[in-house]
Each structure stands twice: as C-alpha cells, then as structure tokens.
C-alpha cells in the first residue's frame, strides 16, 4: 500500500516537475518586444537627424544653383510649348 502511495506521489511530483519546467521554458523563450521598440526609436531619431541634414544640404544646393534652376524651368516651358505644336 505504502509503495503504491509512494509511486502515486512520485508520479504526481514528476508531472508537476514536467509542467513547472515546461512553463519555465515557455516563459524563458518568450520575446520581450520592448528591445525592438527601443531599436526603432533609435532608428527614427537617426532618420530625423539625417533628414534634417539632407534638407539643409538641399536648401544650400538650391541656393547655389538658383540661376541654373531658373534656366532649366524656362527650357522646360519651351519644351512644353513646342510639344503642344506636335500632332
């Protein structure tokens, strides 16, 4: 009788161990997404800075090439005008 009880208790404790360990493993394997989130925040910040830099570069180039830009606009208009004469 004692043996049966011991075997029964052994079975229960093994089952509990199994469930407990498997739950632990499940918890351990769970991704904590917040790591990615901070990476994304960093990337957004980096992009913001880069956009700011590039916008400045673009404005400077625009100022430096203003006469060329003006000339280009005139020629583009001329192209449109001649194209309108085509069939």
């Amino acid at each position: 009788m004692k043996k049966i009880i011991i075997i029964f208790l052994l079975c229960i404790s093994i089952s509990c161990m199994f469930f407990g360990i498997s739950k632990y493993l499940e918890y351990n394997n769970l991704n904590i997404e917040s790591d990615d989130l901070s990476k994304m925040d960093k990337e957004i910040k980096f992009l913001d800075e880069k956009i700011k830099q590039k916008e400045e570069e673009y404005r400077k180039l625009q100022a430096d090439n203003s006469s060329l830009l003006e000339e280009l606009k005139i020629w583009e208009e001329k192209v449109k005008k001649v194209e309108s004469y085509l069939l």
């Binding site: 509990c16 407990g20 632990y24």
Partner: peptide, 25 residues
Amino acid sequence: SIFLLLISIIFLLAYFYFDTEIHKT
C-alpha cells in the same frame, strides 16, 4: 511522501508563477 509532496507543490507554484508572468508579458 512529504518530500514528494513538497516537490510537487514547489513545481506547481512555479507553474502558476510562470503562467501568470507569461500572461502579463
């Protein structure tokens, strides 16, 4: 018997603890 029962209780508690944590996460 007491030893086996204790082990069972400890692992059961661990099971519920991790289960709750998993839900929270």
